[in-house]
Write a protein that binds this DNA or RNA. Structure first.
Lengths: 217, 217
DNA sequence: CAGTAGGGCTAGGGTTTA
DNA sequence: TTAAACCCTAGCCCTACT
């Protein structure tokens, strides 16, 4: 019932790449209005450009790099609201330094005030494993229940849902978690299931997102 | 760019709703300056409030063509599929109370359980006071030590440093903290020194009762 | 330059289609 | 099932107006 699904032509893809090179990724409307490309892309919207660029850049980057998470916390109308078990984890997280501490590791020298989220991300792995273990749900726990558990036990950040989704995806891709029907279990063997990434279809050269030039307002 | 995108927390949404009830939609700057809400909304601008209110109103009105069906099926299987949509559009909003009734889930009118829909909202105020108290540093603690304390005791969000800086600034400006030479102490008198209330816009009957502001504790 | 209203844009999650 | 194309919305930006 929707759209007839217009496949992107080679010419359109080339124009999109050229547009990104010229104006930068994220400047979709600018690219679209550029007379140099509007003749080819006149059938597409700025959102189409964005989506296409995303499709061309899938998986090439990977989740292993820096934090890429931010946003989400989709509105959850109802919380499973589980038991009051205040014994399993207690309410005080006292020992955290001992497990896997992190180095300063400053990535970008700019805006050093924002601090490195490294610590939080590293610990999120443990929180996920802990949630799955203590929830003891047969077949594993879904994302919602994991999130609820962590939110009730810790000081969850505002973008917790998104961090969690990304981390679950990452851990699943790396074989540390097993996902079956939206439920996550801890992998029995933390072994060698290393999925190799086929990068046959390389995206346009800039597969990083650092093109995001700030517009000084 | 320290703030990629700040998701609105439930607490912030509740404060915005309460602010609109109190001051009316459109009085964004007034809501922002109200001490009753500034503690929660101190990260937001008046434009942010306007935009958020617009988004919330859109959701309340038609409730998303697709979200509605999707949530009805997926969330709770026993939803009586006949409810809202009776007064949302055809009715002219006469009072602010009426507007509040057309809200998304949770936090209905009357600010019923705004403070504890779930345990995920941690008061940074309390963490700061706790840090200063337990650190027991003579003359107070600087921001770095406060941050370290909280990071070691809680699962700090990625933008924790920024939140902390803003909150410290806010608490200092409100007299809840005393800042001397970059060190913060808890103000001896925890309350009502109203000498900063300029109130050119505040109605005299304004703050009769505050909604569960458990700020200071 | 304030502040507000409204249009518009982008990023990202989610859904549909081939 | 997968991937490409499309849809939807939150948050933010831009402009006009007062």
């Amino acid at each position: 019932m929707g759209a007839p699904k217009q496949k992107w032509t080679q010419e359109e893809e080339a124009a999109l790449k050229a547009g990104v090179i010229k104006h930068g990724a994220g400047k979709w409307r600018t690219i679209l209005k550029d007379p140099e490309f509007s003749g080819v892309l006149y059938l597409r919207s700025n959102v189409d450009l964005k989506d296409k660029w995303r499709n061309m850049s899938v998986m090439a980057n990977g989740w292993g790099s820096r934090e890429k998470a931010r946003l989400a916390v989709k509105r959850v109308p109802h919380i499973p609201k589980q038991e009051e078990n205040s014994m399993a984890l207690g309410n005080v997280v006292q020992s955290d330094e001992e497990m896997m501490d992190t180095k300063p590791l400053s990535v970008s020298s700019e805006t050093a005030q924002v601090a490195t989220p490294k610590r939080s991300i590293v610990r999120l792995d443990n929180l996920i494993f802990e949630a799955i273990t203590n929830l003891k749900e047969p077949g594993g726990s879904n994302k919602t229940n994991i999130a609820t558990y962590i939110e009730e036990q810790y000081w969850a950040p505002p973008d917790f849902k998104r961090l969690l989704s990304a981390k679950l995806k990452y851990l699943t891709a790396n074989g540390k978690l097993i996902k079956v029907k939206r439920r996550y279990r801890i992998a029995p063997t933390p072994a060698f299931s290393d999925r190799r990434r086929i990068s046959s279809m390389l995206p346009p050269e800039g597969r990083q997102r650092d093109l995001q030039s700030v517009n000084g307002s």
